[in-house]
Structure formats: structure tokens, C-alpha cells
Simulated assay, not measured.
Amino acid sequence: MGLILHSVTPVLTSVEYSPEVCSPSMPYEDSRILLVVCYSIVFALGLPANCFTTWLTFVQIRRKNVLAIYLFGLSLCELMYLSTLPLWAIYVQNQHSWEMGSMACKLTGYIFFCNIYISILLLCCISIDRYVAVVYALESKGARHQRTAIFITFFLFSAVLVIHCPVFILQDGEQTSNRTTCFETLPLNLQLAYFNLARFLIGFAIPCTILIFTNYRIFQSTEISSSLDKRQKAKVKYLAMAIITIFLICFAPYHLVLLIRSIHFLLHQKDSCSFEQHIYSTSAAFLCLSTANSVADPIIYVLASEHKSRRVPCVKSYHKLPA
């Protein structure tokens, strides 16, 4: 599936090579058990965890908690993706042969794309919100509103959903007698390679910079605070560390593969299939890490909710930290 799920704009439909020229010789069997087990475990653990988190964050929203808006959106996003995991497991088990029709393929691919970038953007929103509430506690007092958080979340969802709508008209999702795979473009083409570079920059590198900067400043402000006790400082740091860790473990390897595959294709177009065969198993393992995000995200709620429930004082004054 997802090393693999790379075409998201109409211009990517024109290719220099047959889009499945590498498929017959790809080492699908090497990663079959890993992917099926990964999808099964993530589905079994992630579905109840995110259902519970969705309900808890909804309760917090009714109590006028601003951060709960982003956490609620994150949980909904994960539930949307978790609903497709059984289909991906069946696909992988069937030797990457999609037997559920073109529309089902396009819909599951669409959800995969949207899940990655909605999750990344919402993690950025959570980090920025904590950055403002902690580093600029006095300045932001009374300035953070649920309406603003709802608007931002709705805008992010809408933008990502609209941007990925071209998935429904791409040839990669069509199921014909000559195509049985689902969104597996192997090897790449020039348009796809350039687009993957843009995905790495805009979808990963820039958000990563934002996350590192905001959480580093949170660490600094917490360290010099005289109003937080040792345990309270630890809770603030654990939340920041959890966000950065989830981002780097779940999304960094996947986007690193995008970068490496794209650069290699641009430099060695005639030898692309050979390289794709060598990197496929590694890419499958990185795909498992990105899927594990659906299990890891509820951890953020656990840390954030305990932090909020104890109403930790802000680091610049003795006012309480906004929720």
C-alpha cells in the first residue's frame, strides 16, 4: 500500500513508463506477513482506543476546552483511516491483487492520503496551541477560543480533503484486466517524483521545523519556571516529547522513503525498477510505522488530559495554564 500511494494530482496520470512494469518482479511476499500483522494489530488496538478518545474529547469540548477540539479532530481522522485497514490487509494477503472494484480502491487510497496530512497538521496545531499557552501565557490569556480552534480544524480538514479529490480520477485506482494493484506506481515518473519532493518539503519538513521549534521553546519556558513543581514540569515535557516522538517515528521514515525514491529516479531513471525492488521491504517496514500512528495518538490525549485536569499553573505567572 502506502510506499506506494503517491499520486494525488491529475498531472500525475501521464507516465513515461508503464505504471506496473515493476510489479511482476516486486518482492511482495517478503513483506506480506509484516503488513498483515501490522494492520491487524493496529486495527484491534486503535479502533477501541480512538473511539474512547473521541468520546472523552467530546466531553472536554462541552466543557469549553480549546485543546480538545484538535484532539477530537485527530481521533476522527484516525477512525476514518482505521476503517480501511481490513481492506488493505486483504489486498496484501492477496498478493497485491485488488478485487473490490475501482471505487473501493480510490476511496481507501483517498483516506490514506488524507489521514497522513490531517494528522500532521493537527499535531502542528496542538504544538502551536501549547506553545502559545505556555510561552505566552499572559499575552494569550482570554485570546484562545473554541470558535477559533473549530474554524482551524474545519479549514484543515476541508483543505486536505479537497486537495486529494483528484485521487478519484487517477488511472492508478482503475481496476482493469491489465491492472490489479491499487495505487502502486512502480516505477515512478517525472511528475510523480517532483510531486513527492514537494510532499516531503511541504508535508513533512516544514511541519517538522514547526514542531521542533515550538516544543523546544516549551521545554525552555518550563525549565526556567518557578511556579511549576517538579512533577508538573515533567508532565509538560512528556507531552512535548510524545508529540515529537510520534511525529518522527511515524512520519519521518515514510517521507524519507519518498525523498530517496524520488531523487534516485531523477538521477537513474533507466535503473528505477532494480532500486525499487531493493528498497521495497524497507519501505514496507516504514509503512507499518506510519500506520502505528493510529495507536500512538491516544497517548497524546492521556498526557494532555491529565495535564489539564490538574490545572497546572502557567510558566510565566501564577495564572492557570489555559486548557
Score class of each variant (00 low, 15 high):
12 L>S: 06
2 G>S: 15
217 R>I: 07
253 P>C: 12
195 F>Q: 03
205 A>R: 00
195 F>P: 00
124 C>V: 11
52 F>E: 07
15 V>G: 07
263 I>H: 04
304 A>H: 01
35 L>W: 09
67 L>T: 12
203 G>P: 04
37 V>R: 09
124 C>L: 07
323 A>Q: 00
275 F>G: 06
274 S>Y: 10
226 S>M: 04
122 L>N: 05
73 G>I: 01
246 I>F: 04
306 E>T: 09
273 C>L: 02
319 H>W: 11
69 I>H: 03
191 Q>I: 05
297 D>Q: 15
292 A>L: 13
133 A>S: 13
267 L>G: 06
266 L>S: 05
268 H>Q: 12
177 S>L: 07
311 R>G: 10
317 S>H: 05
27 P>E: 10
93 Q>A: 15
236 V>K: 09
136 Y>I: 02
3 L>R: 09
13 T>S: 15
109 G>C: 14
82 L>T: 02
58 F>M: 07
261 R>A: 13
55 W>H: 13
244 I>A: 06
301 Y>A: 02
177 S>P: 00
224 I>L: 07
2 G>D: 14
199 R>G: 14
241 M>A: 10
75 S>T: 08
136 Y>D: 05
287 L>R: 01
133 A>I: 03
198 A>E: 06
36 V>L: 12
82 L>K: 00
65 N>L: 03
99 E>I: 14
238 Y>P: 00
188 L>E: 01
155 F>P: 01
232 Q>R: 02
251 F>A: 06
277 Q>C: 12
315 V>M: 12
318 Y>D: 06
73 G>F: 10
39 Y>V: 09
267 L>W: 02
80 M>D: 01
321 L>N: 07
66 V>I: 13
134 V>L: 08
131 Y>C: 12
40 S>H: 01
